[in-house]
Amino acid sequence: MSIRPPTLREKRRYLLARIDPAGMPVETKDLYYAVYEAVVSLFGDMAAAAMQPSVLAIESGHAILRCRRGAEREFAIALSTLSTCRDCTLAVRVIAVSGTIESLRERIATLVPQEPDVPAHDGAGEGVPDADPCEYRFGTTPVEPVVWHGHKVDVIEKGFKNTRRLFLTTEDLEKIHATTIPDGL
């Protein structure tokens, strides 16, 4: 079909959503399939066709999604039922709804800190602790922090078998110093 003039085009709404957990690499296409599956499984093919859900971009851990005007509420409900994307567990949290992509991009700029790669171990900022010499422990389990976001810390258990991701806070973590002698020695 040829492109219609602006007055005849259907109105659309754009949703800004945060992808949790932070730092999860998600492809736009994979997220589109996951979103579409969530919409179809909850509301069916008819509603999905009328809603026209789409994923436009993923920028700085945030997704910009699109639907037809008037269907944004149902679209947000369907997004709250999204729990996996290509075997990765995630959650999509709708932050804002807007009529233009530009305003959502401005919103992302306010949400994302300017230098995200700076580690912040005192719980003051956000980042990935890539050059941190300290080792951490949660209870008795040695863990490796992967993402810091304020007081929130995502860690991965160290070990061969249990390497699941844990969601902790800075207060939960205990630093293992080089001088620490473990019990039993």
Partner: peptide
């Protein structure tokens, strides 16, 4: 069982509207 499974009050309202 994970913070990823929690839903905000606004999301819970949407789900309950079902």
């Amino acid at each position: 069982r994970s913070v990823l499974g929690m839903r905000a009050v606004r999301e819970a309202t949407g789900l309950c509207s079902l």
